[in-house]
Write a protein that binds this DNA or RNA. Structure first.
Lengths: 239, 239
DNA sequence: CAGTATAACTTGTATAGGCAAGTTGTGCAA
DNA sequence: TTGCACAACTTGCCTATACAAGTTATACTG
């Protein structure tokens, strides 16, 4: 039995993307929706609030829910999405090259980021993402061995997240990330096609499991001309 | 009469920031909270879901709500926050210099971004943000005259958002933004302290009112060494 | 005709109750 | 002691109801 409010949300979201409900016009009222979907108004409201949070509709008290013009040309770095999922969604001609894989040795910055001691075993994976022939992105992932005991080259070339969530069944919950611009390191220059570029965009992420334990630290290093981050934000008023 | 779930949310959020509830430990259960706050469980759940969305807690079915270690050193470019609010919150020594103010003339890219015709009147404001003596940020804002009939130099030096929300009482609802890295323009070089920098971080925003009409287009151009974007993201699983 | 009261809609908040599903500890049975 | 069933907790989902608050169209009143 699927969750009702989620199925309704997904159905309405797809309908909005397919222009069943035209942008600028109103959705049916909550009462109408609750009868058509044969459910309670609260369940409808849960679905509509999800649509509102994700930029599909704008709710106005007393009036209704207006459909927002969704330009889903979005490159959603927002949210936690793996590179495999991303390139699949966008239909990109992409390739992943595993540069190195193994336990790290005396890397204080990584141990500091993960809160581990130098004696703890930590996987280090360096991967190059090639998009239409150009080496654009350098991903450096670090996993605590306690949570991820085994990592093979095949899983790294495929999707680590798929392995972690479906094979290991670890519940990935949330991430804190920051985006900054830095100067390329020697490694960046060696592994990426950076001729002529003097900056690199670095996305640092701390990824946590459901029990709030930190289990991964990641640096995703992007060539600046190919980097794009799209966000939808609601205004919050402070009183 | 304040909204109950909001006051409970704010109270718990402040308590978590003040370490009343230690990170890694559990909040009281929903039933306990509903008795202490003399309210229903659903109201408590609304407050807790807000805490969860904003990265304060992690809810686990069957167990409880674990407090997340919030590092609020965050520079929240996420969400729609004005520069005035931002520098106030962070206690920065900042200054705003209005470089130019008036109606724009034949700027096709702006008219294209705003969906206006060349004949339509559009305000253009260019402001330089100085932080501890250095000119770091160049903000170029464009407003449709239909919504914002008057703009004075004083309001621009203070806070345009304050003017728009409190004086004009326009309901700012949401924004679509993108972050990219580009080469500085001649104007960037003229107005900012950019010596030695060959890139600039550009945040482009389309800002909408509650009735989903577009009313503002903004380019916020940051010197790359001072730019930082922090985000909290929850993992969404696709089936 | 102009203005206003009002009815009929809309969404927002709050409550009470029920059942499902996951976790944890207790105590009984082998 | 070990293992298992179960009770007692937790959060997740759904329903039904009530009232508040904002919008809109209608009809009435001056």
């Amino acid at each position: 039995m699927q969750k009702k409010y989620l199925t309704i949300y997904e159905k309405l979201a797809k309908e909005i993307e397919a222009k069943v409900w035209a942008a600028g016009y109103k959705l049916p009222s909550e009462n109408e929706l609750s009868t058509t979907y044969d459910t309670s108004r609260e369940t409808i409201r849960k679905a509509l609030n999800l649509l509102s949070q994700n930029g599909y509709i704008q709710k106005i008290r007393g009036k209704g829910s207006i459909v927002i013009d969704v330009d889903k040309f979005s490159f959603p770095v927002s949210g936690i999405v793996s590179f495999k999922e991303l390139s699949q969604n966008l239909g990109l001609d992409s390739k992943t090259i595993v540069d190195s894989l193994g336990f790290i040795e005396r890397d204080d910055s990584v141990h500091n980021a993960l809160g581990t001691k130098p004696a703890d075993a930590v996987w280090g994976v360096t991967r190059v993402r090639e998009i239409s022939g150009e080496k654009i992105i350098l991903d450096k992932d670090y996993f605590i061995e306690e949570h991820v005991p085994l990592l093979s080259e095949e899983t790294c070339a495929d999707s680590i997240y798929n392995y972690i969530e479906n094979k290991l069944e670890l519940p990935i919950a949330f991430a804190q990330k920051e985006i900054v611009v830095e100067e390329p390191t020697a490694e960046d220059r060696r592994l990426l096609d950076l001729s002529g570029f003097s900056n690199i965009v670095v996305i640092r992420s701390h990824v946590y499991l459901e029990d709030t334990t930190l289990f991964q630290y990641t640096e995703s290093r992007h060539r600046p001309d190919k980097f794009r981050f799209v966000d939808f934000a609601r205004r919050v008023k402070n009183p």
